[in-house]
Amino acid sequence: MATEFVSFPLREGQTPHDPASRTATIIKETFDTIAQQPGFQRLYWGTETENPNILRIAIDWDSVDHHINFTKTEKYKLFIENFGQIVDISKGVLYHAHLSPHPPTRAISQPTTPATETLVAFFPSSYSKADQDKFEEDFKNILSALETHGADISTSTASGWVVEELPIPNSESNETGKAFVALIGWISVQAHLDFRNTQAFKDNIHWLRGAKDLKGVKMVHIASTLVE
Rank of each mutant, 00 (worst) to 15 (best):
A2S: 11
A2T: 15
E4F: 09
E4A: 06
F5R: 06
V6N: 07
S7W: 12
P9N: 00
E12D: 14
H17K: 08
D18Y: 04
S21C: 02
S21T: 00
R22Q: 14
R22F: 14
R22K: 11
T23S: 03
T23R: 04
T23F: 05
A24F: 02
T25P: 08
I26Y: 08
I26H: 10
I27R: 13
K28F: 04
K28M: 05
I34P: 13
Q37R: 09
Q37G: 05
G39A: 01
G39S: 04
Q41P: 10
L43P: 08
Y44S: 08
E48V: 01
T49E: 11
N53R: 11
N53D: 09
I54N: 13
A58T: 03
D60P: 07
W61L: 06
D62I: 15
V64W: 07
D65P: 06
D65I: 03
H66D: 13
H67L: 02
I68Y: 14
F70L: 05
T71V: 02
K72I: 03
K72F: 09
T73M: 13
T73K: 04
K75Y: 14
K75P: 08
F79I: 01
E81W: 12
V87R: 00
K91D: 06
G92N: 00
G92Q: 07
Y95V: 07
H96I: 05
A97F: 06
H98Y: 12
H98E: 12
H98Q: 09
P101A: 00
H102N: 12
R106M: 14
I108S: 00
I108L: 08
Q110D: 11
T116Q: 05
L119A: 11
L119S: 07
F122T: 00
F122M: 00
F122E: 03
F123W: 02
P124Y: 02
S125Y: 05
S125M: 10
S128A: 08
K129H: 14
K129S: 14
A130H: 13
A130W: 15
D133E: 09
E136R: 10
E137A: 12
N141I: 15
L143F: 02
S144E: 14
A145G: 05
A145F: 04
L146P: 13
E147T: 06
E147C: 01
T148A: 06
H149Q: 01
S156C: 07
W161K: 01
W161P: 14
E165H: 11
I168R: 06
N170M: 15
S171I: 02
S171V: 08
S173I: 13
S173D: 13
E175R: 04
F180H: 14
V181N: 11
L183E: 09
L183P: 05
W186G: 04
W186P: 01
Q190C: 14
Q190Y: 14
L193E: 03
L193W: 10
D194L: 01
F195Q: 00
N197G: 04
N197E: 00
N197Q: 03
N197T: 01
Q199W: 05
A200S: 10
K202E: 10
H206R: 15
W207S: 15
W207N: 02
L208F: 12
R209I: 10
R209D: 11
K212S: 05
D213N: 09
L214R: 06
V217H: 11
V217E: 08
M219A: 11
H221A: 00
H221R: 02
I222Y: 15
A223C: 07
A223E: 12
E228C: 11
